[in-house]
């Protein structure tokens, strides 16, 4: 597990940092484990202070009407992120699982 900060605002298309699934790909009620935070360092620290660590499990809990921003449940709290930010938080391949719907009444497809 590694912690990567991207010094530039966005990596060139096709770079390994831009491939793979991210939190933005989760549907409501799905959970996944974060692989790395592909964000500038200060945003990365803020996200970690809110619970988004590499290795943390994150649940897509819901979203604003219209679908953006999204609400993620992580480390006991709910954090809203815009899709564009969520797409920079890469998830471990194969870590997606669907939460028991009864446990998350606010999730909607």
């Amino acid at each position: 597990m590694q912690l990567t900060f991207n010094k530039r605002a966005d990596a060139p298309a096709g770079s390994p940092l831009n491939s793979g699934n991210s939190l933005a790909d989760l549907r409501c009620g799905q959970a996944a484990v974060i692989e790395l935070l592909n964000v500038p360092e200060d945003l990365g620290r803020r996200l970690m202070e809110l619970g988004f660590f590499p290795g943390s499990e994150v649940v897509a809990a819901g979203c604003a009407p219209g679908g953006d921003p999204r609400v993620y449940r992580v480390d006991g709290s709910e954090i809203a992120l815009r899709k564009e930010t969520a797409s920079l938080l890469k998830i471990q391949a194969g870590s997606i699982r669907t939460e028991n719907p009864a446990k998350s009444p606010s999730s909607r497809p």
Binding site: L43, P69, S77, E78, I79, A80
Partner: peptide
């Protein structure tokens, strides 16, 4: 600017 960052905790 290119990007807006919106990070909001929902208490």
């Amino acid at each position: 600017r290119q990007q807006t960052v919106f990070v909001l905790e929902l208490p």
